[in-house]
Amino acid sequence: MKILVAVKRVIDYNVQIRVKEDGSGVVTDNVKMSTNPPDDNAIEEAVKIKESGKATEIVAVTVGEVKAQETVRKALAVGADRGIHVKTDSVLEPLAVSKILQKIVDKEKPDLVFMGKQAIDDDCNQTGQMLSALLNWPQATFASNIEVKDNSLEVTREIDEGLETVEINIPAIVTCDLRLNEPRYASLPNIMKAKKKPIEEINVSDLGIDITGRIEQLKVEEPPKRKAGIKVANVAELVQKLKNEAKVI
């Protein structure tokens, strides 16, 4: 079984986001970038499945600028076998990314595609579902547990009401929640070894698809700030304030 894992490079989750003064976006220059956190879970899960003997190959793919390749390198360092970097400098909407990934799926013919449930920059939560629509494959989104069966996966999904379990036949798409597993760190020897693993570079223009954006970003601004509150001295004061000042209890 072959698993394709999609990894995106995003601003690190610890970075305090700053909005550009001209309203054109957020500051990305000299800002720490990392792999989108749930994509680390996607890689980890693929590696665990391979270690259990149920997968034979893991291919990590990213779509983005030159530096996006770092995310593929990191995936290789924790256990992916080879990488694909679809190169583009354009900012892509999930629809475009899913069309690109569809081309990669056509070429690689994986049995499974693992992705993150949501990119923490655009917070779109779309790409996996869109890819499964384009492929007409089953989708198990927000996965917090995966059991591999003969020709299917049994996936536990985190939903608003609690948990849901579905069985999806292979080939299939899974989008991963952070609770799926504990991503491992790459060891130094493995980071060295990963440098020798192959990464295929593909120009997005060679894929013959229209990736023009459909959504114009008119303006990016800071959210309204909350006005500063106060510290109360003790519980009695807190309850009194809630009752008589805020009038919420």
């Binding site: 909407e93 999930p94 629809l95 475009a96 899913s98 779109c124 939560n125 779309q126 790409t127 996996g128 579902q129 869109m130 890819l131 499964s132 629509a133 384009l134 989708q139 989104t141 927000f142 999904r157 985190e158 939903i159 608003d160 954006g213 459909r214 959504i215």
Partner: peptide, 19 residues
């Protein structure tokens, strides 16, 4: 919510719409 997040992109992709 999880219902709409799961469903809408599947519709949007079929309609060739950016959600």
């Amino acid at each position: 919510n999880t219902f709409g997040k799961n469903l809408m992109p599947r519709i949007a992709a079929h309609l060739d719409t950016s959600q």
